[in-house]
């Protein structure tokens, strides 16, 4: 899983550099959350703007990541477009994850 991680005000911005998150990458995606949490990241802004396609395995890994965070931290998403947005709408993930329109709003959301 190619990612770029940067820090702003104690918030970790994780930019996914993959075009597809499917069965082939789902376990990497899941492991990424485990590593982030183990490394002490507690507030995560996940940038999905590079992701053009996500299948059910990818979504399962994302939900797994959210469950791992549990009460310990906060996860917010931005850059959700196209097919990924359709998938999120179909499965009502827009009601489960905070999904924001841009990076600034996402950071504001995680600051509070």
């Amino acid at each position: 899983m190619h990612t770029e991680i940067s820090q702003v005000d104690g918030i970790s911005i994780v930019r996914i550099q993959e075009k597809r998150i499917d069965a082939a990458r789902a376990s990497d995606f899941r492991a990424m959350f485990q590593e982030l949490i183990q490394a002490g990241h507690r507030r995560i802004a996940l940038d999905l703007s590079k992701v053009e396609f996500m299948d059910s395995s990818g979504l399962g890994a994302l939900v797994g990541g959210l469950k791992l965070m549990g009460d310990k931290g906060d996860l917010a998403l931005f850059g959700v477009t196209g097919l990924v947005e359709s998938l999120f709408r179909l499965t009502r993930m827009d009601k489960i994850f905070p999904i924001l329109g841009n990076e600034a709003d996402t950071l504001d959301r995680l600051r509070t």
């Binding site: 939900v63 709408r89 179909l90 499965t91 009502r92 009601k95 489960i96």
Partner: peptide, 18 residues
């Protein structure tokens, strides 16, 4: 319909079913 919560992700009540 436009969607709904998938099965086996989160708890929900009968009223939440779309």
């Amino acid at each position: 319909g436009t969607g709904g919560l998938a099965i086996g992700m989160f708890e929900f009540d009968p009223g939440d079913v779309e």
